[in-house]
Amino acid sequence: MEILLQNFDMIMFLTLMVIGYGMGTWAEKRHYRSIEQREKELIKLAVVTAEGSFPDGKVADSTLVSGSVVISIDYFKRLLAILRNIFGGRVKSYESLVDRARREAILRMKEQAKEQGAGMIINMRLETATIGRSANKKKRVGSIEAFAYGTAIVMNKT
């Protein structure tokens, strides 16, 4: 019992790590599954980064659509990334984080466009940001925001 109390810090740290690893991995897998499923559903809706030009009378309506998401990394992966800082190289744990964030943002944009009955999205742009310095400094890059926006085009039915 005494040893437990003496090493309280260490035990706390290990518990956090295990919780972070378990929950983080589970959440990531679930998120990827939902992303893949929704991407399949929305595959018909084309998204392009080009502007494109349309012949007269083809376009009925055009509006700005956007989607955004803030995602944070788990405790275990943050630790891995800090370790990586020493040796350098590929930080895999962050790669999956930004990948998930961007795909989720694009999906949300597509969902919004679909609600408006749009046929395609042109001139899609992506942006990444961290909110506030505190998210950055105290606990390293804790969370990132991905933001996608574009112009949804509603075609005339001919």
Partner: peptide, 13 residues
């Protein structure tokens, strides 16, 4: 708290 387990931060979004 969410930073511990990872995932979307709905409040910030």
């Amino acid at each position: 708290l969410k930073n511990l387990v990872g995932g979307e931060l709905k409040g910030y979004t």
